[in-house]
């Protein structure tokens, strides 16, 4: 039986589906019984989801910057 401490340490590996089947089932069993760990897992999943959206807000490379870098490429290319 896993402790809350164990589940805390395994949370990212669980989210990333990196745990072996038996370990994964043990985490799920613990989560079924522990509301604190369920909340931690839910919040960590949300954290990963938000992190995954951060780059969507990146502006595209501006035409001016692209043009400047192409000039650099023409100057420095092998």
């Amino acid at each position: 039986m896993l402790s809350c401490r164990d589940v805390h340490d395994l949370a990212s590996a669980h989210i990333d589906r990196e745990l072996p089947w038996r370990r994964r089932m043990a985490v799920r069993l613990h989560l079924a019984m522990c509301k604190h760990c369920r909340r931690l897992m839910r919040q960590l999943r949300a954290t990963v989801a938000v992190l995954g959206r951060v780059k969507d807000a990146d502006p595209p490379v501006s035409p001016e910057r692209e043009a400047a870098l192409v000039e650099l490429f023409k100057r420095e290319r092998p």
Partner: peptide, 28 residues
Amino acid sequence: DRDAPAAGPPAPWSEEDPARLAAHQELL
């Protein structure tokens, strides 16, 4: 390895739905 102990049980968030959270530019 053991991570640093958590300060206690996690506190509830005002919103925990990933899609709704990610929709907020301020949060990003």
